[in-house]
């Protein structure tokens, strides 16, 4: 039996440096609601369950179909996309919403995912093709390779994997699973492979691949089912070979 009312507990925070507080809301149930439509409902009339007037809850979203990662937050304590968090699939009782804890809070449920984007720059997660003349078409990729690479290319830098990784935190230098997996992707690309050693160099420092502790939480949490831990095994192999080659002077 669908619920009549939806109760929400939301962790609010007015500014990046402010302190946080809990607020409770109760809104009427409608068919096919997701967490974002609940937040929109609250926005229409921002009054808490206790009848107190408050500010509309702030959140970030864009694609509304689980491909941009912007709406990621802790729903009932688990990191996931709020746009695909359907109310009717959730257990009874209040729904708890909190911002991700591993990224700086901008306001309420919105966080700044910039650390991930910066890390993508550090590991050179791209294929450099700029130049002064047309390089012509690149080499072909086998269908099997394309399929595996496609899995990695689905990463939407949502941060779920970073949130659950015990090695990614404020007292560790680890750059986290998502950027590392992109090294696996671009090093497998027929053209990207030409710069593979640059990406390997980038992840062989402090905070790089050796700082992963194999807790494998990341792969459990990834909504895109990206085989992150396979990437780390592969990167372990690539970096080891690269290291030995440089040690013995290739």
């Amino acid at each position: 039996m669908p619920r009549q009312k939806i109760e929400l507990r939301i962790r609010r925070q007015d500014s990046p440096t402010g302190s946080s507080r809990w607020e409770e809301f109760s809104i009427p149930w409608q068919p096919s609601m997701n967490v974002i439509s609940c937040l929109m409902e609250i926005r229409k009339n921002p009054v808490t369950k206790q009848g107190q007037k408050t500010t509309p809850v702030h959140w970030e979203s864009s694609c509304l179909e689980e491909v941009c990662g912007a709406c990621t937050m802790l729903v009932n304590g688990k990191p996931r996309q709020s746009c695909t968090a359907l109310v009717d699939n959730m257990p009874d009782g209040p729904i708890t919403l909190e911002p991700l804890t591993k990224f700086p809070v901008v306001r309420d449920l919105q966080v700044d995912r910039k650390p991930m984007f910066e890390a993508l720059k550090i590991v050179k997660a791209w294929v450099p093709i700029d130049g002064t003349y047309d390089l012509g078409p690149g080499p072909k990729m086998s269908a099997a390779d394309a399929e595996l690479n496609y899995a990695f290319s689905r990463c939407m830098t949502c941060g779920c994997c970073m949130e659950v990784c015990p090695q990614y935190n404020s007292h560790s230098d680890f750059i986290g699973p998502a950027p590392l997996a992109q090294v696996r992707l671009f090093n497998a690309h027929p053209t990207g492979r030409m710069n593979a050693h640059e990406r390997l160099d980038a992840i062989m420092g402090r905070g790089g691949i050796v700082d992963c502790g194999n807790a494998q939480n990341c792969v459990e949490a990834c909504p895109k089912e990206i085989p992150l831990t396979e990437a780390f095994g592969d990167l372990g192999r690539q970096t080891t070979v690269h290291w030995l080659q440089s040690l013995f002077g290739k």
Partner: peptide, 24 residues
């Protein structure tokens, strides 16, 4: 303004977090 992050998060500063990794 994201430099200091409250909520029990001990991100000392935003910038330290980004560039702590000493490349190579």
């Amino acid at each position: 303004a994201c430099l200091k992050v409250p909520r029990g998060l001990r991100w000392s500063t935003y910038k330290e977090r980004h560039f702590a990794m000493k490349v190579s």
